[in-house]
Design a protein around this nucleic acid. Sequence first.
DNA 1: GTCTATATACCGATAGAC
DNA 2: GTCTATCGGTATATAGAC
Lengths: 192, 192
Amino acid sequence: MYSEAMSTPERLIESTRELLWERGYVGTSPKAILERADAGQGSMYHHFKGKPDLALAAIRRTAEQMRATATAVLDGPGTPYERIEAYLRRERDVLRGCPVGRLTMDPDVIASAELRAPVDETLDWLRGRIAGIVEEGKTQGQFAATLDAGEIAAAVVATVQGGYVLARASGSPAAFDAGIRGLLSLLAPRSS
Amino acid sequence: MYSEAMSTPERLIESTRELLWERGYVGTSPKAILERADAGQGSMYHHFKGKPDLALAAIRRTAEQMRATATAVLDGPGTPYERIEAYLRRERDVLRGCPVGRLTMDPDVIASAELRAPVDETLDWLRGRIAGIVEEGKTQGQFAATLDAGEIAAAVVATVQGGYVLARASGSPAAFDAGIRGLLSLLAPRSS
DNA sequence: GTCTATATACCGATAGAC
DNA sequence: GTCTATCGGTATATAGAC
């Protein structure tokens, strides 16, 4: 199922990452993880304390990867507006949803301070990063000085997260794209 | 747990509605439903075919209620902008999330055309209703004629749904409010 | 309509052999 | 490090008495 060079703990983490994305924490059983990782029960409890411990490792890695992906786009070339646009239009597997954001709907994740922390930190970091770009745009006069950078950043991230909801409800990425286009049309600098 | 005047099927539907909101479909067991409804297993399987059938009744009722709540605000007084603002600023139990939208993160709901249908229809109806108001605003000159009403509506609904994600991640409604304010600041008619 | 009994499978974890 | 055995508990549903 994975590269033969991959160690057992690695395979466990990777299969957990996939299942958390597809089915969430509550919907993911150790049995399903072990089958996908082609590992035995003994291996899992040797390398990890249990389901929460393994999930924590998986969530941390997913969060880290999301930051890297976002950084690559947000630190790209272009004006502040263009960089935010690049982030919003970035290629996504829309119907799968956000591997980080979806965890907020998981009662057991929200109930655990440890499991929630990486989710919170990642979305918080993203908002801050985008707010900084909005601030740049204000300085350059591309965005109205009256805008609150933190609020715009929250709206940007929320539109993406909510876009996944609309897309999954309708079974099509179209609603996600529509929301993104709508936000961009509101955010667009005056054609001056 | 509920009014004594409430019939057993009613109590079952209500307790299912609560649990679907709190824990989602995958995280809700018949046992938990029965305990909360103070009913026996025989009752549940007498009145409903099983968990999916009961969940469908619960989801339909929740969807219906969400439309009624949204209608009350969107059909209120004021300009198009003011009615959309009223919808966005409406009082919400933010940290509980959206009882309809959260179901889109439930793999078993998305996998079932029957369970997904009321979710899809409700969010689709909401987008259409808001798009109509944006269209009104365009006619009245309150919104720029270049805006696409359907896209703005998608952005509005997505911001709400995504706002729940940000709020639940951070454990505070502040992020939800920030996103709403950000969107409203972009949508606000020119002060002319 | 509601109850209890029963059934098969899975959940999440531990123990101890190899 | 990995395996199999075992555990008490739950998930979802059926059967049949009352």
